[in-house]
Design a protein around this nucleic acid. Structure first.
Length: 581
DNA sequence: TTTAGGG
DNA sequence: CCCTAAA
């Protein structure tokens, strides 16, 4: 069946064939999971502010737990036979001064290409060839200065603001991990000294009192800074169509404007130049191509050449591998594209809000050489405009508009190149190779053929059943309840482990909710179940030989503390059970 | 919703 | 990480 009378503007969904992280497993029955957090956050919100935060602290007063009198290390010695010629009698955690990263995801820009009447302009896969492999170099080089001194954390993380991060990284004992999003880009920073107070009044944190011997009795109240929660992004699931998903709750305004431009498209010629930029040029002449005088019978095909994720910071130690850089970028991008997306249409820079208008009415026709058609990926403002995808997509809000157009322009002019904008760098993610996110068109059966096999592409699935301009972002719930999405794997960093250990030492092993609240309250992607699981693995890790351990090595010191705390709290638990079962 | 454990 | 029985 041919889509003769229909313009292929409907994107039924996007598919991500594969995931960069090798470790990511794909479950057979993976389906989109229901949201567990009410704190759904805008997918593209930029973490801008840094608020103060408190790390629950024992206020230094007398510990009411009898056991507190006992030094945990003694416990270790007695019960674990571990020799722990301690380090000063303090059970404070080791100070990690390594940098961490935080991240900011910002608007994503989508590059598309318009095709008329099967005259693909993007036929040449070379257009999709600018993957990180080639441009990453530039990224590294140009960003070298900014990134170079951030060492210690091998995780490629993304940082929102250097200053904030730096200042936040100076802390030690008590720490609270925070992050600005729930699924991606997160930042954590220990914060102990009240001198390091950053800004903003500390949130009202519950004060947990306990009598754990592990509890440090100093620094009754420490301030820690936190990045405002900001993003709620769900990574895509490999090979899953999201045409019918999209959680509704969420987001406060962030605005990922993805834009893309299809201005003048030109009829695809067998020999369009090589090179991304040139390709762009060429593609940009296509829209104008009149194919059939009677535009009614013409189909407009859109080929999403790539998605751009502008203003994405990748802070990664210089010792990190290219692979980790790729993963970092991939995760960030995945997050950006992972949730709450809307598709917006821009014509000549103006938003086309009326979904009911036809392309022709709107002025989008193959005869129009001057039109500049743009597509934006934007977060949904579900709270205010519920499941009404077809009514009025939420477009950018004032503030981001300018940026949008600016980027739009930038995108158009710098297709295929590593783009360094004014203050921020823009990493363009294009096509192929692992960890590269790419969007290929599948509007035509033949379209993605070339790339799909080699590339991990994000495919825009043609929407055959939708009306003109119907935009149906992938949604999670509607439709298949069976669709759930496995969360992206996010190994705990040493810093997080440190925080976890410290908190568990203080609160014990049966209060994961509190642990979460205490030290990971702002790490939306870490649920108390995650913390519990992590603790479980930590205990296991601590018991096996170092040779059997995998992943980022956890300092032995921490593992020792894990065993100590685990032993201690296990014993406490036993006592309790004997008392009042 | 949390815990606690197995998968 | 996921899934769930229990609490």
């Amino acid at each position: 069946m041919v889509l003769q009378k229909r313009l292929n503007y409907g994107f039924n969904g996007f598919q991500v064939p594969s995931v960069p992280t090798a470790s990511r497993s794909v479950r057979g029955k993976g389906t989109i999971r229901k949201k567990r957090d009410n704190s759904q956050i805008q997918a593209f919100e930029i973490l801008a502010s840094v608020a103060g935060n408190f790390l629950q602290e024992n206020d230094g007063s007398v510990l009411d737990n009898p056991a507190s009198a006992k030094d945990p290390r003694d416990f270790v010695d007695l019960n674990m036979k571990h020799k722990q010629e301690d380090e000063g009698g303090s059970f404070k955690g080791t100070l990690f001064e390594n940098g961490t990263c935080g991240g900011v995801a910002s608007p994503c820009v989508t590059d598309l290409q318009v095709e008329h009447d099967n005259q693909r302009v993007m036929g040449d896969s070379s257009l999709l060839g600018n993957h990180l492999e080639g441009q990453g170099q530039n990224v590294l080089e140009r960003e070298d200065e900014r990134v170079a001194h951030i060492k210690g954390n091998s995780d490629g993380l993304i940082v929102p603001d250097r200053r904030n991060r730096d200042s936040l990284l100076s802390g030690s004992a008590g720490r609270k991990l925070v992050n600005n999003d729930d699924d991606e880009n997160f930042v954590m920073f220990p914060q102990t000294s009240s001198r390091n107070k950053i800004s903003g009044p500390p949130p009202d944190m519950p004060k947990l009192k306990d009598a754990s011997p592990f509890t440090s009795d100093e620094n009754n109240s420490r301030d820690s800074s936190v990045l405002e929660d900001s993003q709620r992004m769900y990574p895509f699931k490999k090979r899953k169509f999201f045409n019918q998903t999209s959680s509704s709750a969420s987001d406060r305004g962030s605005h990922c404007q993805g834009i893309f431009d299809s201005s003048d498209t030109r009829v695809n010629g067998p020999n369009h130049g090589a090179g991304a930029s040139q390709a762009i040029e060429e593609s940009s002449s296509m829209a104008g191509q009149r194919v059939h005088p009677g535009s009614k019978d013409c189909n407009v095909k859109l080929s999403i050449k790539s998605f751009k994720v502008p203003e994405l910071f990748i802070d990664i130690p210089e010792t990190a591998t290219i692979g980790s850089l790729k993963r970092s970028v991939m995760e960030a991008v995945t997050a950006v594209l992972g949730d709450e997306l809307h598709v917006g249409i821009l014509l000549q820079g103006k938003k086309v809000r009326d979904d009911s208008k036809t392309l022709i009415q709107t002025g989008i026709s193959q005869d129009d050489k001057r039109h500049r058609l743009g597509f934006m990926l934007e977060p949904r403002h579900s709270q205010k405009s519920p499941p009404s995808y077809n009514k009025e997509p939420c477009f950018l809000t004032t503030g981001s508009r300018q940026k949008l157009s600016r980027q739009s322009t930038s995108v158009m002019l710098q297709q295929g190149t590593y783009n360094v904008s004014q203050e921020r760098s823009l990493i363009k993610i294009e096509s192929c190779a692992e960890s590269d996110l790419n969007v290929a068109s599948s509007l035509t059966d033949t379209s993605a053929n070339n790339n799909s096999s080699k590339c991990r592409t994000l495919v825009a699935v043609p929407n055959i059943n939708m009306g003109p301009l119907a935009v149906v972002p992938y949604r999670r719930k509607s439709g298949n309840p069976d669709f759930s999405q496995r969360r992206i794997r996010r190994p705990f960093s040493v810093l997080e482990v440190e925080a976890l250990v410290q908190t568990v030492e203080k609160l014990g092993t049966g209060r994961w909710r509190d642990v979460k609240q205490c030290a990971f309250d702002n790490a939306k992607h870490r649920t108390y179940v995650d913390l519990k699981d992590k603790w479980k693995t930590l205990v296991h890790t601590a018991r096996i030989s170092p040779q059997q351990r995998r992943g980022e090595p956890v300092p032995q010191e921490l593992l020792d503390r894990v065993l100590a705390a685990h032993a201690y709290w296990s014993q406490q638990q036993c006592k309790h059970q004997l008392k009042a079962p």
